[in-house]
Computed example of a mutant assay.
Amino acid sequence: MAGTFTVTLDLTETPVLLAGGDAEQAEALLAAGARLRVVAPAPGPALAALAEAGRLTLHRRAVLPADLDGVRLCVVALEGAAGEAVAAMARAAGALVSAVAAPPRACRGRASLVGAGPGDPALLTVKAVRALETADVVLYDKLIDPRLLDLAPAAARRIDVGKRCGRHAMSQAAINRLLVAEVRRGGHVVRLKGGDPFVFGRGGEELEALRAAGAAVEVIPGITAALATAARLGLPLTHRGLSRSLHLITAHGREGDVPPHDWRALAAAGGTLAVYMGARTLPRVAEALLAAGMPPATPAIAVENATLPGERRIRRTLADIAAAVAEAAVEGPTLTLIGEVVALAGTEAPAEAARHAA
């Protein structure tokens, strides 16, 4: 029986071939300083992203003898006969061979990316309720109403992943890894996200991670904040003669600053602008729109905690909305609507209006 012996290699600027494998294995080799080429018939999105970023060379096919030219180390992450064939090819080419576990190809469970809506539990969709009722584990954001978690079976595990604009207890990469790990354990994994998973919710990244792991994934939409807020205000987001377009933008970029939107195009569109995650950066958003030519008197309204009992409305114009929001010291999720249709908004929340009418 052949023995094994562990050695340590300095891979700085060393040509290395990864046969098969995943982004995690590639990242480890890159961190060690390797000049990495990867040959994999069906690479996952994360591995492809590393190639697109220029960090490695990727070939989407089976390993060929020419792939081993000049290679000092061949890391084989393929199973069965395919892995044995690549290892033999590498040894014949004079390369060192390291066999590692192939990425798991199949998951025993399934996942649902579920939009929880803007906050009011009554706005959860029927399909979302059914997903929660069959969940074995629920990964939920910080601001999810606890009553939604009660819809899951009593035996279902509930994991707070702590996501909130600007304050994350767990990084997105860590959430992705946890999702994959839970699906591999088996059962039905529900990822419960505020609003809609695909509207500034990074649901696309979670979907990619689950697909790369071979998981079956269902996406259940939720009512996004712009739609819910407009409904609360009695404000049509599009309206004949006032607004023929709707633009959803985020005011919170990768580094916490405002992303480089095409402000001139937004100002010239004459539609309704919904600004997500902009409570802290609203001064820069307003400044950019004004500089791009949007009239200072354009109606604007910021709504904190829309659809919830603590909802607050701050109604001004584009010129002074940022200062008013700062003075109000908002803490909850805040959406700002800008455009001529804002002039059509009601002045009271529906419940308040009904109480006063009585």
Results as ranks from 00 to 15, higher is better:
Glu218Pro: 11
Val190Phe: 09
Leu248Trp: 15
Glu205Leu: 02
Ala269Met: 13
Gln172Pro: 03
Thr250Trp: 03
Ile249Asp: 11
Leu273Asn: 04
Thr224Ala: 07
Val275Asp: 13
Thr224Glu: 03
Ala268Gly: 05
Asp257Gly: 14
Val258Gln: 00
Ala213Leu: 06
Ala181Phe: 09
Leu227Arg: 12
Gly201Pro: 10
Ala209Glu: 14
Arg264Ala: 01
Ile220Leu: 05
Ala265Glu: 04
Gln172Asn: 02
Glu206Arg: 05
Ile175Tyr: 15
Thr224Phe: 04
Val275Pro: 12
Ala213Gly: 03
Pro236Lys: 00
Arg232Cys: 15
Phe200Val: 15
Asp196Leu: 01
Ala174Arg: 07
Val275Asn: 11
Gly186Lys: 03
Asn176Pro: 08
Ala265Asp: 08
Leu246Lys: 12
Arg185Phe: 06
Leu207Lys: 11
Ala274Asn: 03
Gly204Thr: 05
Leu246Ala: 13
Ile249Arg: 05
Gln172Arg: 07
Ala230Ile: 03
Glu182Val: 04
Ala209Lys: 12
Val180Leu: 04
Ile223Gln: 11
Leu210Gly: 06
Pro236Asp: 07
Phe198Leu: 15
Val258Phe: 08
Gly214Ser: 07
Glu255His: 06
Gly270Pro: 09
Gly270Asp: 07
Ala231Val: 13
Glu218Thr: 08
Ala174Pro: 07
Asp196His: 00
His252Cys: 09
Leu210Ala: 07
Leu207Met: 12
Val258Leu: 06
Leu192Asn: 01
Ala212Asn: 00
Glu255Ile: 00
Leu273Tyr: 04
Gly253Ala: 13
His261Met: 04
Ile249Thr: 01
Leu233Arg: 12
Ala181Ser: 06
Leu192Tyr: 00
Val199Glu: 14
Arg254Met: 02
Val217Met: 10
Ser243Phe: 07
Arg264Ile: 04
Arg184Phe: 13
Val189Trp: 13
Pro221Leu: 13
His252Leu: 09
His261Cys: 00
Lys193Ile: 00
Val275Lys: 09
His252Gly: 08
Ala216Cys: 08
His252Thr: 04
Ala173His: 08
Ile249Cys: 01
Tyr276Ile: 04
Gly195Met: 02
Arg254Cys: 10
Val189Thr: 15
Gly222Thr: 14
Gly201Ile: 00
Gly214Met: 01
Ala251Thr: 02
Gly234Ala: 08
Ala231Thr: 13
Ala268Glu: 14
Leu207Trp: 13
Arg177Asp: 14
Asn176Phe: 00
Gly195Ile: 07
Leu179Ser: 05
Glu182Trp: 05
Ile175Lys: 14
Gly186Trp: 01
Glu205Trp: 01
Arg244Ser: 15
Ala226Ile: 08
Leu233Gln: 13
Ile249Lys: 02
